[in-house]
């Protein structure tokens, strides 16, 4: 099982780099949708025997991360004129390199944390930290409101990977609560993105500079 799991996680890490290296907003959203869909399947390959709780998280997680949230974001993108992240804070290639460095750092850092026997072969911890860091890179270096939301989603995906270590510890209710919060959060954010777009005729967050000292 660990082989299959690690293969999936390597694909997730490659999707991180892909999200960092593409400028079309719609491609970034699709990349993250693919990543989310892939991650929601992790509980199925994680354990030899499938628990009911794990199986029950798969369906809503797949629907939300893979279909509904990306769908809402593509919908929000429809009315927007600018379809590309034109001038990120740092260029696309440097940010891919930064992402790769973050992955290396995550591998080294994860080595410092003691794991229990059952998890020692899996790449879950480094993959989780690398994905969280990728989310941060997207949040900090991109200026379009929707790309920043994508960054937040990638960050959440990283946390979701870590959650796989704790399927038993996190009861179903809490898991559902987390997903619900994520969903409502993105929903509210999409409304605000729309409002930014209407009020400023752009969704460039660099226009949001009237509030300062």
């Amino acid at each position: 099982m660990t082989n299959l799991l690690n293969t999936l996680l390597v694909i997730v890490l490659m999707l991180n780099l892909f999200a960092l290296g593409t400028s079309r907003i719609v491609s970034v959203i699709r990349t993250v949708a693919a990543q989310g869909a892939l991650l929601s399947l992790l509980p199925l390959v994680l354990h030899d025997h499938l628990t009911l709780a794990a199986a029950l998280t798969v369906v809503p997680a797949f629907a939300l991360k893979g279909v509904i949230i990306p769908g809402m974001m593509i919908h929000a993108l429809r009315d927007v004129k600018i379809k590309r992240e034109v001038e990120p804070l740092i260029g696309l290639q440097p940010s891919v390199i930064l992402g790769a460095l973050a992955t290396v750092f995550a591998l080294l850092f994860a080595d410092q944390l003691p794991l229990i026997e059952a998890h020692s072969d899996a790449l879950l911890v480094p993959a989780s930290i690398a994905t969280v860091l990728t989310g941060f890179i997207l949040l900090i270096t991109r200026f379009k409101a929707l790309t920043q939301v994508v960054g937040y989603l990638v960050l959440e995906n990283g946390i979701f990977i870590f959650g796989m270590l704790l399927v038993e510890a996190m009861p179903l209710v809490v898991e559902m609560g987390v997903l619900l919060d994520l969903f409502v959060g993105i929903f509210v954010i999409c409304i605000i993105v729309n409002q930014i777009n209407q009020a400023f005729a752009s969704m460039d967050t660099r226009r949001l500079v009237s509030l300062k000292e």
Binding site: Y152, V188, Q195, I196, L208, L211
Partner: peptide, 11 residues
């Protein structure tokens, strides 16, 4: 101004 504040607050 309130959009800007809400956006920063949420993010």
């Amino acid at each position: 101004r309130s959009i800007e504040a809400t956006w920063k607050y949420l993010l």
